[in-house]
């Protein structure tokens, strides 16, 4: 069973275009899938689930669509906060530092993280306004500021300076809609991840599809290029 599963939620726009709907309708339809997958992952015993919701590059999309996304995310966060709390899911938001994020949304992110900080069921990391390279640059800055001599820097020590250093390496990445790209997602953590590319668009993706991906993962032979399974995260 993969310990840490990450999903790149791709295909909302195409899902809407195929139905001659505005792109925003695709984002709205994604909400159902998100809740379904969270539930399926929890039930299957996945300990860490990460969702790639909005990348730093997505700010380049049309202004109206970005606005709509912000409002939609805010509504989803508020709507499902009690459920996430009741399910014992610890929520946190990776990235979410851009001043373009509305203040109210940032407050909601913070509130949801505070509210579920003590939950122990499953950790849900939502990568919102996240960029893998930016995290690495930030970690480098923090490392330099800490004044560590260059020869003492190890992979483990470097990982401690990444946001949420307790996050273990990603074991499985699911990218829907058949696209086969990394798109600057959690670059450090996906170093040894297995990738699965189901053809379904994200709004059509459901719990059975998710379980099928877990099954594919279990049949894979993970070799880590001869490196021990966990290079960061839990030191066990």
């Amino acid at each position: 069973m993969p310990r840490h599963v990450a999903c790149v939620m791709d295909g909302n726009g195409r899902w809407a275009q195929r139905r001659s709907l505005p792109r925003t309708a695709g984002h709205r339809a994604a909400e159902t899938t998100v809740i379904d997958i969270i539930e399926a992952a929890r039930a299957a015993g996945v300990e860490w689930l990460s969702l790639y919701a909005f990348s730093t590059e997505n700010w380049n999309r049309p202004g109206a669509e970005v606005d709509y996304l912000m409002r939609l995310v805010r509504r989803v966060v508020r709507k499902h906060a009690p459920l996430l709390l009741a399910r014992g899911i610890r929520c946190r938001f990776l990235g979410a530092a851009d001043p373009r994020i509305p203040r109210e949304l940032a407050q909601d992110f913070e509130d949801l993280a505070t509210l579920t900080a003590d939950s122990r069921g499953m950790t849900l990391t939502v990568a919102f306004d996240h960029g893998g390279r930016r995290d690495i640059v930030e970690a480098t800055r923090s490392l330099i500021r800490s004044g560590m001599p260059a020869e003492e820097v190890t992979e483990r020590l470097f990982a401690d300076h990444l946001p949420f250093p307790d996050t273990p390496d990603v074991d499985l990445v699911i990218r829907t809609s058949g696209e086969q790209r990394i798109s600057n997602f959690m670059l450090w953590q996906v170093a040894y991840a297995e990738w699965v590319f189901p053809e379904a668009l994200w709004p059509d993706f459901r719990a059975p599809d998710f379980l099928a991906c877990l099954h594919t993962y279990r049949r894979r032979d993970r070799r880590f290029g001869g490196v021990p399974p966990q290079t960061n995260g839990d030191p066990s």
Partner: peptide, 17 residues
């Protein structure tokens, strides 16, 4: 209390965007 106020804020209906 911090969690209670967080929940309170999250549950407050959105009056206006």
């Amino acid at each position: 209390m911090k969690r209670a106020s967080a929940l309170l804020r999250l549950l407050t209906p959105l009056s206006d965007e």
